[in-house]
Design a binder for these strands. Sequence first.
RNA 1: GGGCCUGUAGCUCAGUUGGUUAGAGCGCCACGCUUACACCGUGGAUGUCGGGGGUUCGAGUCCCUCCGGGCUCACCA
Length: 856
Amino acid sequence: MPSDIPEKPALEGLEAHWGDIWEREGTYAFDRARAVELGKDSVFAVDTPPPTASGSLHIGHVFSYTHMDLAARFQRANGKVIFYPMGWDDNGLPTERRVQNYYGVRCDPTLPYDASFTPPQEGGEGTSGKAADQVPISRRNFVELCERLTVEDEKKFEELWRTLGLSVDWAQTYRTISDESQRTAQRAFLRNLARGEAYQADAPTLWDITFRTAVAQAELEDKEMPGAYHRVSFHKPDGGTIDIETTRPELIPACVALVANPEDERYKPYFGTTVRTPLFGVEVPVLAHPLAQIDKGSGIAMICTFGDVTDVVWWRELSLPTRPMLGFDGRVMSEPPAGIDSDEQRALYAELAGKTVFSAKARMVELLTESGDLIGEPRPITHPVKFFEKGDKPLEIVTTRQWYISNGAKDEDLRSRLLQRGEQVDFHPDFMRVRYENWVSGLNGDWLISRQRFFGVPIPVWYPLDGDGNPVFDKPIVPAEDQLPVDPSSQPAPGYTDDQRGVPGGFVGEVDVMDTWATSSLTPQIAGKWGEDDELWNLVFPYSLRSQGQDIIRTWLFSTVLRAELEHGVAPWAHAGISGFIVDPDRKKMSKSKGNVVTPQGMLDEHGSDAVRYWAASSRLGTDAAFDPENPKQIKIGRRLAIKVLNAAKFVYSFAHTDGAPVTEPLDVDMLRRLAEVVRVATDSYEQFDHARALETTEQFFWTFTDDYLELVKERAYRDASPEQASAVAALRLAIDVFLRLLAPVLPFATEEVWRWTHDGSIHVAPWPTVNEIPVSGASSGLLDLCGTALIGIRGAKTEAKASQKTPVTSGTVTGPALLAEAKDDLAAVGRIAELTLVESDEVAVRDIVLDETAE
RNA sequence: GGGCCUGUAGCUCAGUUGGUUAGAGCGCCACGCUUACACCGUGGAUGUCGGGGGUUCGAGUCCCUCCGGGCUCACCA
């Protein structure tokens, strides 16, 4: 039953009130039976980004999730069956780090499980984060804490999304660490493996020494770091020297060659000869390679294994040996690399062993200075250095065995297929496709998916051990798909028993887990229950819409396209809606490290969800939005609009109305014609994912409706029953009905509140308004606009006289086109003009206004 | 250095296929508690459309060039 119209409508409390009712009524539930009946074309499936559970949601999330919700709500109103799940990305490094800080613990996989373990602290966000202050615990204890904390975090996230009014079906929630997700991720991996798309390689790998894990190209970030050029002498056999410049003199023991440009006349004579490294006297060749830049440093560089990614290229293309000297912890290894053999050299190396890169460099500079091999003073510079985006120490490059998935970097056929899939996706805005294409075109290595971490989806393989107890990596043992998910570090390999673990002739389990993106790239498959529920899967895949921020095109968007191409050979969605990001008043991107992040809960509490949604909806896809938490202008405007909707509707519903009364008065007809045009534009805009234009058009006419039309006709609407009175009220009520539905995606709470005053069901399952339900046709006569202009004149005259707008007018004249006569009575009424004279003219003007001074 | 986006009123932004005097909201100034709304209403002022050049009868809109801002990739000896 429709509810009573409150005395004083307010926004406060609407979120909780209607949120509960929507949940109870299943307003947003995926109607599977209907989808089955109507077929896949009736389904609008949204592939939603799972936010990092252990991170915090910020205002930028609200921004892009609202954009996604607007599209879903529009499609729902248009009769689509909406599949709108929500997921949480809870596996991975961010969770581990948060658990470490929150509980003051650290995972040490060598420790046994302690069933009675209680963490030393809870909620200690302010701790040092230093390993020394953390209690080492077993992997199983650690994973338990991860589970515990993410469940808590996810509850808070869901609360926030519900408050914001996302029309998600909360029965479709998924977690990337759940058994189902693990099964999906492992199944997809095994199929990649079977097709040869997943493989292992023992190769130089970008390595984070803090987290002690490999990282992928997509996770790199450059940071400007101070450094210094050191000019160092290498010794020619004839006693002369060749001077190189390096920022990493500590890597001299790892030097395998010098390299200069083949065109460089200065070094041409030395190509093919050898020199000896300073201090250690290791003999290394002088080689030519086009990547060496003539004008950089001294034009000749030392190649170490490995100082940077260029070293890797040289090492590979020049077939050089490996002389590693840094361990997984970023410290100089105790055993010197090959070539450092004599006691003297080894003693020198021992001075560096165990030191961090920083300390080793300092000691090396002292040693080089003593030996006279350092020419002049080091010259300080700042230069970009590669970091793991979540790390705070520069990456090192170490050689390790890792798992990769081919991504087109080394396979032109795959690369062109991925580009083709990109063309098949409708990007909104369209230019965002270029970012995808740039990324695909610029890939220079396959996707490294193994991580030496603990809280993630295990890579589902084991390795047999040979007679000496060495793993046979190229003969991995894989589980059957119906055994998934598996944890090779705690379960025996198929065909083996637990006591064969680690013994010659037995097996070992892979200990690595997958990169988070290797799971979240499968969100369509996880939410659509690929391989588990064929009926559902066929209804939702490929999805209709992927909605996300522009910052994760290279990671999430790309990896999703890749997995869909490898497994299904299609683009995973028809549309990709890309939201811009939020910048602070100084136009700086909001990010945690800059400390300018705004948490959304306070904004929602203070201004109301509709207001915050209005702010998000008023920005087009792909454009960045400025946001000043101290003065959230757009939010305040949205709040004003929502309040206006409540009040205007309440006012309209206060007039006596006759059911089925026809709209006959020219002004009423003209308002409805204008409204029909608004419906046309708004619908067209939403269809093109241009919610901002739909909102702007609707909002603008809504204000004309309340400020001009409603003012013009309210006197008539108050009168006793008559065809003119009934016409006004019929037009008013019809307009409100249409406005509410046009605004419902943006203001789901205020519009629902009003809708239920006169309707039984939810506005959010009501059909989208069409021009067919507006009982007038033809283009606007312009009458409403003319009246609006005349109104401004009348009001201006009163303002000029410093009189109240209600001051009666004895007489006045309005000039304008003859059409104005059709609204003469309304004009006279709104201006309280006793004697109104109309004079025909091209220009609308108001003159000779005589105020009734006796009316005090 | 490459690619993409962007520069319109003090602020945030609209400006459709080039077409009269360039728009909105906020803010500002003035006025008004007008039988829905003071979480309000009414009126008003405000711009070399980043600079320069070109195409055109006509350019905020198209082309070239320069300058500024942002994102991104690359470079990293």
